[in-house]
Amino acid sequence: MSSIELFAGAGGLAIGMVNAGFQHSAVVEWNEDACQTIRENIDHYETGGSSFDLYMGDVRDFDFGPYAGQVEVVSGGPPCQPFSLGGKHQGFLDERDMFPAAVGAVNQTMPKAFIFENVKGLLRQSFSSYFEYIYLQLSYPEITRLPGEAWDAHLARLENIHSSGRAKPTYNVLFRLLNAADYGVPQKRERVFLVGFRSDLEIQWSFPEPTHSEDSLLISKWVTGEYWDRHKIAKAARPELPPRLRSRVARLEFLAPGINTKLPWMTVRDAISDLPDPEKCASPVIPNHVFSPGARAYKGHTGSPYDEPSKTLKAGAHGVPGGENMLVRDDGTVRYFTVREAARLQTFPDDYVFHGAWSEAMRQLGNAVPVRLAEAVAGSVATSLHVASN
């Protein structure tokens, strides 16, 4: 099944799409370092001897004409800074808002489905009208904005059409806020996914159910002890059960065996404990595993505990917020994650090499969709499309 990837960045969503069975016809990304990262990892994209067009430039300048009616899925993560809690919160007033370009791509290609991802800030109350606007544009991508028409006037026109029932939506659109940790990613990363299927296909679909849970992690740590045993941590060296969790763990102890069938959340220790300490042993064999000095904790930026999923890796508007991309060691000291460790937290393959200096590589990773989460959503979409075509 063919696809077009927009706003590809370092390629997290794009690789997840490939792992789910899609083959990219085109990949569009404006950042030179991100494009070089994709070029250096081309084997992860070109499966079965196939190839794709890598376009480095503004998606608004890309010619979608040759792909009209030729791709099953359009996917991508429109730049999220306009809606990010760490950004300037300008939304549709921000020149980096690329949702209009994403809608335009759907309109010009009319794929069978689309998958778009964005930060949870998109669901903030202050953006509710604009989120409705995005939703209705994706439902009726062919009803475009008129010359000189303000976005809210276009929204009103779409609302009138939708509420009157005069036109059936071209795409049936669903959205949900997903936590990557619930799908086996060792990171607490909440993202909004908007998924649409062309209505003429009459596909019934729902978001994939979570495979992992925090309750299961708590049970493995504080009830059975399996987590510590697996990591060969002696009882004397294990931390105390935090007071804030005591009542919750007490309730979990009384669950009937087997009632919780989900796997435990993955932790930072699960993800990186087999890598050598980069401060003590720089490894020339492991790509991007290089120590970066200067880490310090301060209010609001305290790093990620070893035995929890990491905090959300971030890119930042003016460099990387160090506290969000730090590891808290067992002794309480902190250090920056290496690029390879951050890639593990985003579930990129170990042979996936990131181009650019530490800050640039971390920017790419902070903007990426976790590969495992992308594969979960894309795989579910692929299954529905396959069933519909048979």
Rank of each mutant, 00 (worst) to 15 (best):
G303D: 08
P305A: 11
K311M: 04
D330E: 10
I272V: 15
V334E: 00
E202L: 12
G322T: 02
G316D: 02
P305V: 12
Y298D: 10
H231G: 13
P257M: 07
E226G: 01
P210K: 01
T267H: 03
T211I: 00
A297Y: 09
E202P: 04
T267M: 02
E324K: 00
A237M: 14
T338P: 04
E279P: 00
F207I: 14
D215C: 05
V223M: 03
P208Q: 05
A317N: 05
D215A: 04
S247D: 15
S213W: 02
D270K: 13
L255D: 04
H301M: 10
D331Q: 12
I219Y: 08
L263N: 03
E214Y: 06
I219P: 09
I203P: 13
N288P: 05
P284T: 10
N260T: 04
K232C: 13
I203V: 14
H301N: 11
D229C: 02
S283K: 09
H231T: 14
A234E: 13
Y336V: 03
P243A: 14
V339H: 08
Y306H: 11
T312K: 10
H318G: 02
P309N: 08
Y298A: 01
A317E: 03
A271V: 14
D270C: 11
Y227I: 14
K280R: 15
K314H: 06
L217C: 13
D330M: 03
A315T: 01
F207R: 13
P243M: 12
L245F: 11
P242R: 12
Y336N: 08
I259C: 04
D277W: 09
G319H: 01
A317K: 08
E209W: 00
R251V: 01
F291H: 09
A315F: 03
I203F: 10
I219F: 08
A236D: 05
K262F: 00
S283F: 10
H231E: 14
T267W: 04
L275R: 11
L217N: 11
S273V: 09
V223E: 07
R230Y: 11
G300Q: 15
S220H: 07
H301S: 11
S273F: 00
H212G: 05
S213L: 05
S220F: 00
A315Q: 05
T333H: 10
V334W: 01
R296N: 03
L245N: 13
P276N: 12
V249T: 04
L313T: 03
E214A: 09
T338Y: 08
K232M: 12
R340H: 09
S292H: 01
A317G: 11
P276M: 12
S213C: 01
R248I: 06
D307A: 14
E226W: 00
L327E: 12
